[in-house]
Amino acid sequence: MILKRLFQSTIGKKILMAFTGVLLFGFVIIHMLGNWQVFAGAEALNDYAQLIQSKAFVLWGFRLGLLAVVALHLWAAITLTIANRAAAPEKYAESKTLGTTWASRSMTLSGCIVLGFIIFHLLHFTVRTVPGTPEYFQQDLKGRHDVYAMVVHAFQNPWLVGIYVVGVGLLSLHLSHGLQSMFRSLGWSDKRYLPLQMNLARIFAGLIFVGMSGVPLAIFFQLKDF
C-alpha cells in the first residue's frame, strides 16, 4: 500500500522527491570531496579516478543506481509540476511574492538548468565529447586516465569556468530550498527545529557552492600552482 500511495498521491510524490533528493545530496557531497583531490595534485586525483574506474561492476552499479534515483526525482518533479500547473491555470493581474523566496518559487527552473548542466558535465568530463578536450590528455605517464590534466586544461577556458560556476550556483540555490523542503516533506519539521533546519540548508548550500565552484575558479585564477 505504501508503494501505491508513494506513486499516486501528491504527498507520496513529494516524499519520493525528498527521499531521492537526500540521496542526490549525498552524492553531491561525495563528488565534492572527490573534486578536492585536485588540490592534492595530479598523483592524488588520478589515483582516485583510477580507483573508481577499476571496479567496473561497482562503478556501473553505482551509475545505474544514481540514474534510477535521478529518474525518480525527475519523474516526481515532472508529474507534480504538471499537476500543479493544472491546479493553478490562471495568474493574478498583480502578483506578490507573499513572503516566499525566489529559490522556493523557481525549483522547476533551477532544476531544469541543473539537469542541463549535469548533461553537459557528463558529456564534457565523462563521455568527453565536448569540443576542446584534446586527445593527448587521455593518459598520464603511469598509463592512467589523466583526469588532472583534463580538468586543469578545461578550466583555463573562461566560458567553461562560467558554465560550471553558474551550474553549481543554481544547484546550490536548488538545494537551499530543497534541503529544508526535504525535512518538511518527510515530516521532520516543526517550530522547534525549523530555524535550525533552515540554517543548515543554507549553510550546506553555501558550502557546496564554495566547495564546487572553488575548483574551476582556483584553477582559472591560478590560486595554486596547477
Binding site: L80, T101, S104, R105, R184
Partner: peptide
C-alpha cells in the same frame, strides 16, 4: 479535487 502539491514555499 484537483488541488496541487505542496512545494513548501510558505505563501
Amino acid at each position: 479535487q484537483g488541488f496541487g502539491g505542496c512545494t513548501n514555499t510558505g505563501a
